[in-house]
Design a protein around this nucleic acid. Structure first.
Length: 880
DNA sequence: GCGATCACG
DNA sequence: ACGTACGTGATCGCT
């Protein structure tokens, strides 16, 4: 190791960032934990990136500081803290204490002063320093060996901006020391000093760049331009000086600091592990992998069954009408183990051996599904090949129930259910087995594997009553029993059937693409004059905007943006840009589709993808391995891929699409008379919207008017905002606002409806679909404008998208059942949100088409009709 | 493992 | 002033 490194963290500032950046989070004790969670994530991330040897956290104290003596009304630079944040500060200190991270505070000084003092002292000792804060005032500390890191919370996570002196210079055109002068000149709005000059950032930077300090600028007051800035500085000079003094960090505050106490090599103490568990920071727990896990009391009643006779007795004791929990652990179409829970104190683990064969156990599981009143399992769909049950069986899927109760979670594993619905902290599968399969673990670590298997059955059993109760309380029980549970079977059928894909034809398609890719690649190298990886946005950005100096290399984050919308603007003037866009399209089609799909074509010439029911926030299903819901259609070349999706010999495809289902749902849910009237028999919804909004006869609507109306319709469904619409139409925000106002004038019922959705969601905390599906919207409580606005759009969009999803689910279930009930051989092969694709024997095409359209049209009774377009074809391409 | 990009509704 | 359209998943480059 070459040089010692220390990370110094501004405690309150990072906690605030985390508090406003991380969605609301509470553990089962009801403790707010989002700020602590966010803080720890930032801290761990930085410690890992920096590979630091030392770490310490500085906090402000309650007592007045030297700044109060300088200036009576000084209240510090922070706004009063919300209670939910305040209560997390002590918790944070406890957690840091448990990790043995020193907490630095000093009476009379703020955290900034402590950070400054320790940072400068460390640098003097030859230590490399990293200061982490959300407060830009800290930039004044940036130095040759002092890096300032400022996390920015953005949706999806945090990104961190780093500042050495040259970075400060690059962004603000001033040195770190001058930075305070610049801020003082601007009159930082977060300061509590009234009347400090209001000079903009650009002007302030220019003045300080020229004069170096406010004092020197004042000395040359007559030269200061523009006049407004001159006047402002004249009038407020003393206040600006004071502001500068207050913002200047004291780098000699006399804090005592011990490097030995601040070692960063062992944060993962048992005490800290206990905190992670109590606070339910699951993702952080994995960092503590060596820490032992204690066994909760439930495990006392877990039993291993190895004997056939014993098993017989247990199954016999499981009376008709019982409620049980069941889990089948399977691998490669074979049963590895089975768990059965018949009561709180009776959980059994069966591992096939001797006379107790796998087939026997599966047979018993099937019997139980016929005799019991309720069989609850963690995840039903993967068990159906074994259980061979249909939707009339008493099965209960705990993960689907958990999903309905909170669709925002990533996982619905047994430990999640135990925590959320039983208030139990139990070891997760990863805690017990790591990444091993259960089969492997049964050989290497039988006790833990047994415990894991038993928990699956136990929690499936124990959570079912609570989940049922919660579903009823939330008025989602019929959504669960009438839609989500039956849907599991329909999705299973669809996966089993799969879709036929022509391997050879796909390969030919890929080969055609590859020829074009190679040719285009060469042309791009010629045009740009260099050989580089066109697929690397980083390299591409450098070539286009640095080397070739193409204009407006704007939109930066980690370099230049080379996204399609940026390149589109350059394409007319620079042929190479168009080539790059074409290259992108070709490589996308090749890697994701031509080569990507080929992997999934099975020995039966079919692709059996997975349709996930517990992923989306709104109630849609999602598709993975492969994703069959994003097969190209918009571009002609991409659309060709659909030719490889074909029906079985002797069959054809019927493709049926809902026409504008979301807008029809909007018309119905809002009850807006005019919109309902417009959609009653309209076949071109966007044109009719244009006609009404722009007061133009329908047959005189121009293509532009229609395009605008279409964008507004999209905007309404997405949760309207003038900014978003202006982006979508590349018009000014003012124009966008006018369109929106016109729309709302035309359809006042829609405005009322959307306002009500937001108000209701603010009150209850969740958005609700027509069928009672809920989506929590914690962002609505955020004090952060951006987050709150997002919450408002979500509150408007979720009920609409969710209702459309509900309707499609109902249609799917009914179509699936009707096909079976009528003895037809047709099967659903795909669902793409508003589209169903059916593989049909040629002799039943007309009957099936009629059935399909009828079930889709009448899946819900709305005040506008649901229109369905259906086409027949010999491939997916042709049936569209 | 994450961001950028792009495919779909 | 702040800075985005809603919902997904796969692939690639990069660290």
């Amino acid at each position: 190791m070459d040089k010692e490194k220390i990370v110094l963290i501004d405690g309150h500032s990072i906690m605030s960032r985390a508090f406003y950046g991380v969605p609301e989070l509470t553990n089962s004790e009801g403790l707010h934990t989002n700020a602590v969670y966010g803080f720890l994530n930032i801290m761990f991330k930085i410690l890992e990136e920096e590979q630091a040897d030392h770490v310490a956290v500085a906090f402000d104290r309650k007592e007045p500081t030297f700044r109060h003596k300088m200036f009576e009304p000084y209240k510090g630079t922070r706004k009063p803290m919300p209670e939910e944040l305040h209560e997390q500060v002590d918790l944070m200190k406890e957690v840091l204490g448990a990790m043995e991270v020193p907490i630095l505070t000093l009476a009379g000084y703020e955290a900034d002063d402590i950070l400054g003092t320790v940072a400068k002292e460390s640098q003097a000792k030859g230590v490399e320093v990293v200061v982490v804060s959300g407060d830009r005032d800290l930039l004044q500390l940036a130095d040759e060996h002092i890096k300032i890191r400022i996390p920015k919370t953005s949706r999806g996570g945090t990104e961190i901006k780093d500042y050495y002196p040259e970075d400060v210079k690059n962004e603000y055109h001033v040195t770190p020391t001058e930075f305070i002068d610049m801020k003082a000149l601007m009159g930082d709005s977060s300061d509590n000093i009234p009347g400090v000059p209001s000079i903009g950032e650009k002007t302030a930077a220019a003045i300080i760049e020229a004069y170096g300090s406010i004092e020197n600028a004042y000395a040359h007051i007559e030269e200061i331009k523009p006049p407004r800035a001159k006047k402002s500085l004249e009038e407020n000079y003393s206040l600006a000086q004071l502001s500068k003094e207050l913002a200047t960090i004291n780098i000699n505050c006399g804090i005592e600091f011990s490097y030995d106490d601040a070692k960063a090599d062992n944060l993962y103490t048992p005490a800290a592990y206990q905190y992670m568990k109590r606070l339910e920071f699951k993702s952080l727990l994995s960092r503590f992998s060596d820490t032992p896990v204690e066994s909760p009391s439930a495990e006392a009643h877990f039993q291993m069954v190895t004997d056939f006779g014993e098993a017989e007795a247990i199954f016999a004791a499981c009376k008709a009408g019982a409620k049980i929990g069941l889990e089948l652990v399977t691998l490669d179409h074979e049963l590895t183990a089975m768990a059965l829970c018949t009561g709180e104190e009776a959980t059994y683990c069966f591992v096939p051996q001797g006379f107790m064969r796998a087939e026997y156990l599966v047979e018993k599981a099937r019997d139980l599904c016929r005799s019991c009143e309720r069989v609850s399992v963690l995840k039903l769909k993967p068990l159906l090949p074994f259980l061979k049950a249909e939707s009339d069986s008493p099965l209960f899927d705990a993960s689907v129930a958990g999903y309905l109760l909170n669709p925002l979670k990533d996982t619905y594993d047994y430990d999640d259910l135990a925590r959320d619905y039983l208030g139990m902290t139990v070891p997760s599968r990863a805690d017990l087995l790591g990444k091993q399969t259960i089969k492997k673990a049964l050989e290497s670590d039988e006790k833990k594997a047994f415990t894991c298997i038993c928990y699956m059955g136990y929690i499936a059993f124990m959570s079912a009553d609570r989940l049922t109760e919660e579903l009823k309380k939330a008025e989602m029980y019929s959504l669960f029993t009438d839609i989500e549970m039956p849907l599991i079977y329909s999705l299973f059928h669809m996966e089993q059937v799969g879709i036929k894909a022509e391997r050879e034809r796909l390969k030919e398609y890929g080969d055609r693409l590859k020829v074009q890719i190679v040719a285009l690649e060469q042309k791009i190298y010629e045009e740009t004059g260099e050989t580089f990886n066109i697929n690397s946005p980083k390299q591409l950005g450098e070539v286009l905007f640095d080397h070739m100096k193409l204009p407006n290399g704007k939109k930066t984050k980690s370099g230049y943006s080379t996204a399609a919308d940026v390149l589109d603007k350059l394409a007319p003037d620079y042929p190479v840009v168009q080539m790059i866009l074409d290259y992108r399209q070709l490589t996308k089609l090749n890697s994701t589709y031509a080569e990507g799909l080929a992997v999934y074509i099975g020995p039966d010439e079919r692709i059996h993808g997975t349709f996930n029911q517990t992923i989306t926030a709104t109630g849609r299903i999602s598709s993975t391995e492969p994703n069959l819901q994003n097969i190209p259609v918009r571009m002609e070349l991409g659309r060709e891929i659909r030719k490889i999706f074909v029906p079985e010999d002797g069959c054809v495809f019927i493709d049926a699409d809902y026409s504008q289902i979301e807008l029809r749902v909007l018309a119905h849910m809002s009850g807006d008379e005019r919109l309902i009237g417009a959609y009653r028999h309209a076949d071109d919804i966007h044109a009719i919207t244009a006609s009404e909004v722009f007061h133009t006869p329908l047959d005189e609507v121009t293509p532009l008017q229609r395009r605008n109306a279409k964008a507004v319709n999209f905007g309404i469904v997405y949760g309207i905002s003038s900014f978003g619409l202006s982006e979508g139409l590349s018009i000014s925000r003012k124009e966008a606002t006018e369109y929106i106002n016109k729309y709302f004038e035309t359809y006042p019922g829609v405005k009322e409806f959307l306002d009500r959705l937001v108000a209701d969601a603010k009150e209850t905390g969740y958005a609700v679909s027509m069928f009672g599906r809920r989506r929590p919207v914690p962002e609505l409580k955020s004090t952060n404008f951006m987050q709150r606005s997002f919450g408002e759009r979500v509150a408007m969009n979720s009920p609409i998208q969710g209702t459309a999803a509900d309707i499609m689910k109902i249609a799917m279930i009914r179509v699936d059942r009707a096909l079976k009930a009528k003895g037809l051989k047709s099967r659903i092969v795909l669902q793409v949100h508003d589209e169903l694709l059916i593989e049909t024997q040629k002799d039943e095409v007309e009957a099936v088409k009629a059935l399909l359209v009828d079930e889709m049209k009448h899946a819900a009774d709305l005040s506008v009709s649901l229109e369905v377009e259906a086409n027949v074809g010999d491939s997916w391409f042709d049936a569209k």
